[in-house]
């Protein structure tokens, strides 16, 4: 029955959201407990009840909590940023790391950290500007070149190359100031400072809320410019506005997590297969899914090889690279993304 089909699609999305949320809760508890000095869930609960004085509570408050929050926030932000970029560029291959948005944010973060080390509060803002510059450049190039799927990716390669060269230039010319930046380039949360996470959260939280409220515009942009405009959307404004949201999200995430790649590609694609392509449904689910994905990956990366810790960026690249190749192959076969 068609009507019940609609119902079941909605129900499927809702069920998906509930499952993702429960998994996220479990992963968050696991992430808080697991680590060099393991805590049992009971110890965790005790620490929460007894307050800051116990050693367990300190580990929680100063190490595990910031790290868990960092993974949650950057995962949610990067996945939603990917959904938005894919919607605005009408291109399922677009994701912050592929079209150069990450590289832009990274370059700007590096510049800011190198030349204005005191202005750590503004790192997310600088990263946002870098990400925005890159995403506007891609929008411009895509408009000029006809926005075919592979063209946008190729334009991204070019933008990535230019920005990476800039990054390399800075690290070569200012080796002292950029010491310790190699971890940033790989992307990961080891030694993430709580202050940086909370600063970035002040950017990410409102941007996520706005993205949730305006997700229908992404769907309308998908109807094509002419239809979108004739049902009353101011197309150019909506497109630039959405790109700004994507840039805030990717930029703020990258300002503390480093250049994490592929979250914005893997998460939306996996969820699209489950619940269909409508951004109104996909965007909130991707928020949960992105948070879950990065949190799980980070927990694995920092515990599986103990006492060594693998930066989660490496794990994501190991998963994401092959996934991207698989997507490209599917595109060539004419399958839908």
């Amino acid at each position: 029955m068609p009507i019940s089909m609609n119902f079941s699609l909605k129900r499927k999305a809702r069920l998906c959201a509930v499952i993702l949320f429960l998994l996220l809760l479990a992963a968050a508890i696991a992430s808080m407990c697991l680590g060099a000095s393991g805590l049992s869930p009971r110890e965790l609960w005790q620490a929460v009840r007894e307050g800051v004085d116990s050693p367990a509570a300190r580990i929680l408050l100063y190490i595990r909590l910031p790290r868990t929050l960092a993974a949650l926030l950057s995962g949610a932000a990067l996945a939603v940023s990917g959904v938005i970029l894919q919607g605005v560029l009408l291109n399922p291959l677009a994701s912050p790391n592929i079209v150069g948005v990450n590289a832009g944010a990274g370059f700007a973060t590096l510049l800011c950290a190198c030349f204005f080390p005191a202005a750590a509060t503004f790192l997310p803002a600088a990263a946002f500007l870098g990400a925005l510059a890159a995403s506007l450049l891609i929008l411009l190039l895509a408009g000029r070149m006809g926005a075919s799927r592979l063209t946008v990716v190729l334009a991204g390669v070019a933008v990535n190359a230019i920005l990476s060269a800039g990054t390399d230039l800075v690290t070569t010319l200012e080796p002292e100031a950029t010491l310790g930046m190699s971890a940033f380039m790989v992307g990961g949360f080891s030694g993430v400072s709580a202050a940086r996470v909370y600063t970035a959260a002040a950017y990410i939280a409102p941007a996520l809320l706005l993205a949730l409220l305006t997700a229908d515009r992404l769907d309308i942009l998908g109807l094509g410019d002419e239809v979108a405009q004739s049902i009353g959307l101011r197309v150019r404004r909506a497109r630039v506005g959405q790109l700004m949201l994507a840039s805030v999200l990717a930029g703020a995430a990258i300002s503390f997590s480093g250049l994490l790649g592929f979250v914005g590609l893997i998460v939306p694609h996996a969820l699209r297969r489950l619940t269909g392509g409508e951004n109104r449904t996909l965007l909130p689910l991707s928020m949960l899914g992105g948070a879950l994905f990065v949190l799980v990956c980070d927990t694995i990366a920092r515990t599986a090889f103990a006492p060594y810790e693998v930066p989660v960026g490496i794990l994501l690249a190991l998963l994401g690279g092959p996934f991207f190749i698989w997507l490209l192959l599917r595109q060539r076969k004419g399958g839908r993304g």
Partner: peptide
Amino acid sequence: FLPQSRPLPAIT
């Protein structure tokens, strides 16, 4: 206004 050519979005 309904244009002649449009993309084919993945929506219901």
